[in-house]
Design a protein around this nucleic acid. Structure first.
Lengths: 296, 296
DNA sequence: GATATTTTGGAATAATTATTCCATTTTGGA
DNA sequence: TCCAAAATGGAATAATTATTCCAAAATATC
């Protein structure tokens, strides 16, 4: 195999000494970095001894590492003040097949998504690995992820707003049915412990309870997909009467979000019909305790 | 200008009443959102009354707002389970000329300086003692610690044993009062979803329900310090009748532990007077799902 | 200063991705 | 039931973007 091009000099299989000149460092690279940490190291290790244009690439990339995921070759090249082909060469020197492969690293690393738990659990059951302990492990992990996601995404302003609304209410009406019911029940418990007048609305007997709503009260409604009509109806009813409504739900596109004056969304990992509720409860307790202490 | 296509119905200049049918909401949009905040609002405002495919787009986009910057049309469409053309239509309904224009908003705003979990947690807590955000930070951390402790301390044998006992039962009687009540309620919900005959015993009306216990049944009792006398009494009563009792409690020294055939303990971290229930619920769901699938 | 070698820039091409268009299906109302 | 309008999916096309290639320029060595 003859020496085909200059890039090879920097790469893994370059034979070091079958050439007459050696103007720059002989950085025989290993495989391409697969983590951002590795990438940074490679970058600082390589930049010395690179020819001018490639060094410009290295410098600009190093200074704009967090824009790689959302930039095009042309944009980055322009920023580095080199032609696109130079940037391509640079990516290849780093060990990637091209820019796209390098970019993928940064796009994937950013994606905060939950694993697909419903299929994961199904597999777990089907493969017979579904021992109770394995299941427990999955649910623990799901809870952990949910809590982390909540920490990252919590809307502090909405939370503060919700506290203000509920703290000012004469009575807090709590409604949450089906899988939101445990949350509602726990909120009722905490409010009770903190001497906040609260009423837990149950689903039984249909819409009887809406008469309990009185001027000066507020509603705290909780529902997740598939949304409970009764919960939404009560929230809407309250809103029609001019009462403040705090909505605790899963997405801003939830039908409950329309009826809410403060909207709290919780990123919870779902397994089909089940959700871990870890994040939901954490947010709920924080809300309740904050309301309790705001009332003195 | 003639009515050229369906998309116009949702858009700014659509003339509202020059058509015969109006099947969905007439959301005459303003200009396309230019900030992410606006985008969120638009999303929650528009989602109602959207046809099926477009609603799927709205939901998926809402749940993956932070992936827009680094995704392609095809990827997002696949995630929403719609064809790419549907997603394009959705972007246009929002007011953009197409996906690229919408994506630009997110690429410009893209700040991977998104604090990681521990940084963000610190920020939350540092907003000042007693603020809702600080409380939220504390409860998130308590939940996470609880889950980690559970992962380390879980008694696999006891869990397996509990599954066997409950899977063999005709009817599972669940009792948990006060702060254990949300857990009991959620267990009842999950059992119901999985078609496991289960009965949730409530505290009202005192001890009436013990007559519901029949040979072949089993009891799942939940209580934490300060322990509920009624819960312990029901568990003891069941045991006296020779029914198997699964105990979900906080310590091995809990009075409930004496009445249980399988004892599950959960190391829950308290913050202030309240406990997060994260670990308890994780264990509870795992138990319920395992029982559900053991029954087939 | 001559020559072998590396580096460079830009034009040509390939690949991917966004976007449009329209025939078909679905929906809602008479 | 039928009809008009809306919604849909997928194939065709347009636009963008990545990648290669190679002639020209620069550089190091002698």
């Amino acid at each position: 195999m003859p020496e085909t091009g200059s890039v090879d000099r920097f790469r893994l299989n370059a034979r070091p000494n079958d050439r007459k000149y050696m103007t720059t460092l002989d950085t025989a690279d290993l495989a391409a970095p697969t983590t951002i940490e590795e990438f940074r190291e490679r970058l600082s290790g390589i930049s010395e001894g690179l020819p001018r244009r490639l060094r410009q690439c290295a410098d600009h990339i190093a200074a704009n590492i967090d824009r790689i995921a959302v930039s095009t070759v042309a944009e980055l090249a322009a920023g580095a003040d080199v032609p696109p082909s130079a940037l391509m060469r640079f990516c290849q020197i780093l060990g990637y097949s091209g820019f796209s492969e390098m970019q993928k690293l940064f796009r994937d690393a950013y994606a905060p998504g939950f694993p697909d738990y419903s299929t994961r659990l199904k597999n777990l059951k089907e493969t017979g690995a579904g021992t109770p302990s394995a299941l427990l492990g999955e649910f623990i992990e799901a809870g952990r992820l949910s809590l982390e996601a909540l920490a990252k995404s919590a809307d502090e302003a909405a939370l503060a707003q919700a506290v203000v609304l509920l703290a000012a209410a004469d009575t807090v009406h709590i409604i949450g049915l089906r899988r939101a019911f445990p949350v509602a029940a726990y909120l009722a418990y905490v409010f009770d412990k903190m001497s906040v007048p609260a009423m837990l609305h149950e689903g039984t007997g249909k819409l009887d309870h809406r008469h309990a709503l009185r001027p000066g009260d507020a509603v705290l409604a909780i529902t997740f997909a598939p949304y409970s009509d009764e919960t939404i109806a009560l929230a809407q009813h309250a809103r029609d009467q001019g009462l403040p409504v705090v909505a605790l739900t899963d997405r801003i596109t939830s039908p409950l979000a329309r009826a809410g004056d403060a909207i709290l969304t919780v990123p919870e990992v779902d397994f089909g019909a089940f959700r871990s509720l870890s994040a939901t409860l954490a947010l709920a307790i924080a809300l309740a305790v904050a309301v309790g202490s705001a009332r003195g």
